[in-house]
């Protein structure tokens, strides 16, 4: 598809903000349209990375799972973590990638809870590895649009102040 979906969203959002927003009188309609345009930009940002971040994260989680097997003290959990470490993407629709990603994250939470309760250097190292991945987890979900949103909202409030 050309132009690509994210490009269409960005362009349409810009048109809404620059051409249509200034002509709207009612506060709540202005806010609705402005925020809708910003949300289109959010979706545009997510569109490009949506598959990448899930696949990248699934790889990272499987690496953690594989590396944790020698540390886990609970046999049932070990079996589940091992099974999770072997799961691969065989369907690249977003809905399927998302399901697998959520499944692996649930296992990560269980694993993290277990590791936190263990003593010893191996457990400490594994805990640190999980936290490093959680930093990446957070980073992958960041959006860059908020600064622009803050500026728009402040401008609107400053304008109201002048009226």
């Amino acid at each position: 598809m050309r132009p690509q979906a994210d490009q269409i969203l960005r362009t349409t959002a810009t048109t809404l903000i620059t051409q249509f927003l200034p002509g709207i009188e009612k506060d709540h309609e202005k806010t609705d349209l402005g925020l809708s345009a910003l949300l289109m930009m959010v979706v545009s940002e997510e569109f490009d990375r949506a598959a990448h971040r899930r696949i990248e994260e699934n790889h990272a989680l499987r690496r953690i799972f594989a590396g944790s097997l020698s540390v886990i003290k609970d046999d049932d959990l070990k079996r589940r973590v091992e099974r999770a470490s072997e799961k691969t993407e065989n369907n690249y629709h977003m809905s399927a990638l998302d399901r697998l990603n959520c499944e692996l994250q649930e296992v990560l939470i269980e694993l993290h809870t277990h590791i936190e309760g263990l003593a010893g250097e191996d457990a400490r190292n594994m805990n640190e590895a999980i936290w490093t991945e959680l930093e990446n987890w957070t980073k992958r979900r960041e959006f860059t649009i908020w600064e622009m949103a803050f500026a728009m909202l402040t401008k609107a409030a400053t304008r109201d102040e002048g009226e």
């Binding site: 609705d32 957070t138 959006f143 908020w146």
Partner: peptide, 17 residues
Amino acid sequence: NTVICFGGMFASDLQGR
């Protein structure tokens, strides 16, 4: 409500960080 969608998304991103 668009405010709910926008607010929830931006706040959960920043609060998560």
